[in-house]
Design a protein around this nucleic acid. Structure first.
Lengths: 242, 242
DNA sequence: CATCTGGCTTGATCTGGATCAACGAGGCTT
DNA sequence: AAGCCTCGTTGATCCAGATCAAGCCAGATG
């Protein structure tokens, strides 16, 4: 578990054909993958891999949402990544996993044995380049998040989070302005380095100010995108790096 | 700027022969590098690259220390990485830089034009694998730091920071137990997401408790490694991942 | 040798977010 | 339909760390 890739498009039926792994889907190499893939499902809340486990498979997240977290001895937990459909789990050259991966919702993975997949990565330059690109994207995202965790206020953190949700558009969007919070208040808190009470209060505040509107607990709509952006603490340009 | 690599050893005279880039130094490919390298120096405090700048060169940090930071509009700044000698600056496939790189002390870089270097990376599999390994190391380090920034107390942050200094051993060590703080109190604060006053107070507290001893403002010695470890908030095993 | 300057320490006070606590509201089960 | 759960809201209070404010100390400068 490891890469989080902001790339929703598919270019075929099989998840492994997501642009995530190969930008050129007709490549013969991908046919090899067809033979070795298998599917695996997890229920919401179930662990997918624990830190320290052997990484026997690589996988592509087909449906659902998973989280990447670390929990300290006393139970404090910090989310370090959020995996959405088409995101990739696995890192070439690594035997074990450094963070816990947990299914946030029901999850389907499309898996490949690590060895043959790694062989493929080694043989096919544009796949290894793609893996490098994903790693660097993830590195950028992690560093952006470090800025948020270290220096932003609660309000800025939530505004940034909402912007991220809107940008990464979890559901392919039936209604353009409606968005779904993929996480509970507690999970959001663990993502932002806050408590669930603070999340709740800040969301209420944004609602009261007319920046966002809530359809129900999980569904919201941005009423004032500009105010949200102002509240996020990011400068004008630097927004979309992910 | 981008990779931070925890790899002090050299395997030759030239910095590019650091294990950082090639684990097998006799490779012919490295001879190519000999011809295209050039050196560049920066004074303490000078910017090396700004966010958004074109990344025309890759480089290896030969001497000195540099920081990777992001500054918000109102001046709040967060350090997202610390570059020590033999660390690598540059990312294959990227045109621009996402964070500011600044010389913390006087710095010497050994540079290479990006294009030819990238060509080399593409041609030589074990170099591209090494680059991937560095990227993944950095990704892990960034995520570990996210846990620190999001969930650790001031005391835990400082203890973790001191442990990191001891582990990464800035100076090759004349006296095994003496260590040097590579940063000012303010820089440490920006690294840990705190203020300089809090850094000062926490260091005083650790001193008073006999956990560390200060030779002068910059030089310290661990008196009670175990207590320091206890204070860091990390669990028994998970320490050295970097 | 006096002064200055930039980094550092220490004290006093303030405050954003944590913590503790109670209550609501929707979705299950029975 | 009643009784639970789990998740979420809101209020009251607390406290770790920020902020404001003096001083301090060592090395640089005249």
């Amino acid at each position: 578990m490891t890469f989080v890739l902001n790339q929703r498009e598919k270019c075929g039926d099989c998840p492994i054909r997501h642009r995530a792994i190969c930008a050129r889907c007709d490549e013969d190499e991908l046919l090899v993958l067809e033979g070795m893939k298998s599917y695996q499902t997890f229920e919401a809340g179930q662990p997918i891999i624990w830190r320290g486990d052997d990484l026997t498979h690589f996988a592509s997240l087909v449906t659902g949402i998973a989280s990447l977290t670390r929990t300290l001895e006393d139970g404090r937990t910090q989310m370090v990544g959020l995996l959405l459909p088409s995101d990739f789990i696995g890192r070439p050259g690594r035997e074990t996993v450094e963070f816990d991966v947990t299914a946030v919702t029901d999850v389907t993975l499309c898996r490949f044995q690590r060895r043959p997949f790694e062989g493929l990565v080694e043989r096919v330059p544009h796949i290894s380049q793609r893996m490098m690109e994903m790693a660097l994207d993830e590195l950028n995202a992690a560093r952006e998040w470090m800025v948020l965790l270290g220096r932003k206020t609660a309000r800025e953190k939530i505004a940034t989070f909402l912007q991220m949700i809107v940008r990464r558009e979890t559901v392919p969007s039936q209604n353009v302005q409606d968005h779904k919070l993929p996480l509970t208040r507690e999970e959001i808190a663990n993502f932002l380095g806050l408590t669930l009470e603070t999340i709740s209060r800040q969301l209420s505040a944004l609602k009261k100010e007319g920046v966002v509107e809530f359809i129900d607990r999980r569904h919201f709509r941005i009423k004032d995108m500009n105010a949200l952006h102002m509240a996020s603490g990011d400068d004008a340009d630097g927004g979309v790096i992910v």
